[in-house]
Nucleic acid binder design. Structure first.
Lengths: 166, 166
DNA sequence: TATTGTTATACTCTATAACTATA
DNA sequence: TATAGTTATAGAGTATAACAATA
């Protein structure tokens, strides 16, 4: 389905879409393996980032955004709260609900992870021929806004891999 | 360190490196969440891909390439063998060693995953304004070879996150 | 002795099912 | 009844340590 829907209108032909999809997969592996840290999980880092950007959220909303089940998010929040990276308060407007927020320690951890990521990417880039570095810089300059919209659109669509909420 | 080493010679300035690092992280999350499947793990898919591209390999070599411990790879190969996606034969030249290969079913699974990935990316691209699609296509055209060299260089460096071999 | 791989054990992260408490 | 969240339980995936077999 993903195909016929696009075939007639897309300025990006089929072969190029396949090329992009393959590159994205390899870049994802690279990002996780070479730029990632193993101190907290990808879901944990992503949830912390969301709380840092958008403020406190309900546990259910976090679970939906991160594409994991509610029990999984309950446990994630428990772990990160124990580590001092998140904090939980009861929702004053709804006795059933919990509001989760990021702590200062959580923000510091995110900043530290970002520094690591940039440093490791710098090492990878430095190993490339200068022409490649120039090419990549130019491509990023031209494509960054479109890439950000791609990421935003994907996030809005909601994690397709999200399990049913209950 | 990753910084000072590059600062003087890189054609990519510090701010742009940070931008690339951030984009890569978000793209990785997007690729895993929106383009990925949960039938097998990222490590399993990557190991299968390696066997498909480069032929049979020793278990130790696979573990090193995928950045996991030898026991983890033993168990991964056991699981995938039980699922019929990999096969194991004794190395005729070394009584200690095992040669792992991909089966036809494994190749079919990889092909299926790739089709899914392309279809899902097509849906994501279709949700973007046509100008963005054109921009991304042009950027990929110009940057794809450099990106492939980046991935290759990173792979050669060996998973930084690889645990000690034993 | 060194290398290849397995077994034993434990921890993280995830899911589904069953439950409690509030709306 | 429906929603928000927790507890119980189980499986995948990972690590380290200790082991067996071969080089």
């Amino acid at each position: 389905m993903g195909d016929a829907a696009v075939e007639r209108v897309s300025p990006v032909d089929r072969e190029r879409r396949a090329e992009i999809a393959d590159l994205l997969e390899q870049l994802a592996v690279l990002a996780v393996r070479q730029l990632g840290r193993r101190d907290i999980s990808m879901t944990a880092a992503s949830a912390l980032g969301r709380l840092a950007r958008e403020g406190p959220a309900r546990l259910t909303a976090l679970a939906a955004d991160e594409g994991v089940s509610q029990p999984a998010m309950t446990q994630l929040v428990q772990r990160l709260t124990k580590q001092g990276l998140m904090a939980r308060v009861a929702d004053p407007d709804d006795g059933r609900a919990v509001l989760v927020s990021i702590t200062d320690a959580g923000r510091r951890l995110l900043a530290e992870r970002r520094r690591d990521r940039v440093a490791r990417l710098s090492d990878l880039l430095a190993a490339l021929p200068p022409e490649d570095q120039t090419t990549l810089a130019a491509a990023v300059d031209s494509a960054a806004p479109a890439l950000r919209r791609l990421v935003a659109a994907a996030t809005d669509l909601g994690g397709r891999s999200a399990p049913p909420a209950g």
